[in-house]
């Protein structure tokens, strides 16, 4: 089976691999590169657990072919904490008890990060819209919405 090279930046580090043509970015990240933070909840684009940030935009890694990401800047939840210090979103998810089984959490955090990067002071409606592609079966969403709003406030206080 034909292998093709892929090369991109993952959480700031250069990655280069030979993969089978047609491999999704999700499988390439998990099986080849070893970043298992994006989760495969559906492989259909309907759950958001595999969400990653590609060149600043939220994308579903299960529907993205790895070959189309050559040269891209990819970010995942595994790269969010810097120097062992949790990102404000991660901190807020902990403090708000916004994780239960945890399977949706990395995707939720990616979706929330893109929101806060562009909209530092989001309304509740903004948060709801930003999370609308991500399924959570445990929490009933409310703690997650609250966590994102808390993180936004923490962010804006830090900036001020």
């Amino acid at each position: 089976m034909a292998k093709v090279p892929v090369q991109f930046t993952l959480n700031g580090a250069e990655k280069a691999e030979f993969i089978e043509s047609g491999t999704t970015l999700l499988n390439a990240l998990r099986d080849k590169i070893g970043d298992t933070s994006p989760k495969g909840g559906c492989h259909q684009g309907t759950c958001g657990a595999c969400s990653v940030i590609i060149d600043g935009e939220l994308r579903l890694s299960c529907l993205t072919l790895a070959e189309t990401c050559n040269g891209a800047d990819i970010k995942t939840t595994a790269g969010l904490a810097e120097g062992g210090v949790l990102h404000p979103l991660q901190r807020a998810f902990l403090d708000a008890f916004a994780t239960q089984c945890g399977f949706c959490t990395p995707g939720m955090i990616m979706a929330a990060k893109v929101l806060l990067d562009r909209t530092p002071n989001p309304s509740r409606e903004d948060v709801v819209e930003a999370l609308s592609g991500n399924i959570c079966r445990c929490t009933g969403y409310e703690p997650i919405i609250q966590a994102v709003l808390v993180a936004a406030r923490a962010n804006s206080q830090n900036a001020a």
Partner: peptide
């Protein structure tokens, strides 16, 4: 067969609880 067709309340459907 997916989360689009299997219906559950979304984050915009939450009751005040």
């Amino acid at each position: 067969t997916d989360f689009n067709q299997y219906l559950m309340p979304g984050p915009g459907d939450l009751a005040q609880t």
